[in-house]
Every structure is written in C-alpha cells, then in structure tokens.
Amino acid sequence: MLDDTCRARLSFPSTHWSLVTRVGQPNGAGQQQALEQLLIRYLPALKAHLLHRRKIASDWAADLLQGFITDKILERGLIEQADREKGRFRTFLLKALDNYVVSELRRERAKKRSPGDAAFVTVDEARDHDGLSPPVSDVFDLAWAREVLAEAVRWMQVECEKSRRTDIWGVFKCRVLDPTLGQTEPLPYEQLVERFGFQSPTQASNVLITAKRMFVRMLRSVVGEYARDETDIDAELEDLKRILFEARA
C-alpha cells in the first residue's frame, strides 16, 4: 500500500472516466500509472468487502485480491471491459470480484472433493459464499465513500501546495476539516486573522469561500473519474452521502 506521500505525487486526472480510459489504452505511457491509481483507490474497499461482507479471513482475502488483480485485471484486461454506458464503475468492479470469488470457491471445492487434496474451503465458508446475494455491498460502499473523501482531501492539499496557497489549505483545515471530523472547534475569527494575516473580513471570507469551493470541486473531480457526466456525479455524491449518513459508525 502506498503512503500519503506517494499518493500525493500521483497526478490529477482531468476528465471523467479518465483513469478507466487510460487503462484501456494498450501499453500507453500512462497505462501503468493509471492502473496503479485505480488499484490504490479501490483495494481498501474491495478488501473491506471480502473481510466484512463476505466474512473471508484476512489472509485468504489478500490471496483472493492478489489473484483477482493478477488473473482478472492484469491478464484478462478487466478494466478495459468496463463500459461507462453500463452503469457505475464501482458496481462493475465489485460484481467482477464477487464472480471471481464464486469461481475460486467452486474451483477449491472441486479440489477439496478430489482425493488427496487438503481442505481449503470449509463447509461454512462454502455456504456463506455460495449465497452471494446482493452484488453491491454496504461495506464496500462505505469504504468507497471514505476513499472518495480521503482522496478529495489529499488532492486539495496537494493542489494548495502546488499553487502556493497554503493559506487556503490552512483555513480549510482549521475551519472545515478538523471541526467536521470532530477533532477541534473551528479556529475563531481573531486567531484566523492573526495566523494568516488577513487584512480585512472580505479577504478572510474570500479565502474561506475559496477553500470550500475548492473542496467541492475536488470531490466532484474524484467522483468524475468514474461517473459519466455532471448528472451522474450529482447522483453519485448524493448516494455516497446517504451511505455515510446511514452507516452505523
């Protein structure tokens, strides 16, 4: 797993479905990087799905994910098959993973029935996974929603640093991010002015408004990587908000 610094170095995609499209370009210069970004982005959500929804042990989940990436994504070009006209990319990926898990279970069960093979899939596991019912997982969706937000926050920090607007990032962090995450009270106006040297309320307000708008823009850009158009971005953001709001923790 790459850390924040590595993630931050990744360049920003500029168009909707840009990552998916770039991965689909055979041996293009950006293919490897695009694939890396996609995997980085989706792996925590996919793993959460296997661990918590499918109740698969951590080691096996890691093996399944590794196999999924190798067999499906790298060798069979799963990403290239994603069709933006046929629904959400995250749903596509999750269905593909579930299908992969089912086929792996069947394969392992067949091996288990063969004389001389060590048991790999327990009866309980087989029953659990045989009944792979809803294709879309709330655990996956929640992990994905967190990923979208985390990515938007990272992009915003990087963008502020790149454009040398650390005041925007600072104001966003102490007035919006930290208070919303419940870590601090919003930095009071006087302290904000003192810390960032704002010359007037107009200037302070402008920076705060800019920070909020920038975050919304980043959020839309992250979602825009897999949503079809502006309407789809709106719908996806509403869906992710609902998922977060309805989640228990």
Partner: peptide, 27 residues
C-alpha cells in the same frame, strides 16, 4: 495525514464533510 484521518472518522461526520456548503452565506 489529513486524508488518512478520514478512515478513522465517524461516518456521519463524513456525511457532513461531503455536504460542505460552497455558498458564501453564513460562513
């Protein structure tokens, strides 16, 4: 890092973060 803290935060707070009002009113 700020992005990393998202993973440990309460999901309803994250819903609030995703609902950040970009308007100029009541800031």
């Amino acid at each position: 890092g700020p992005g990393g803290r998202i993973y440990q935060s309460d999901s309803r707070r994250l819903a609030d973060l995703m609902s950040v009002d970009a308007g100029a009113e009541r800031i």
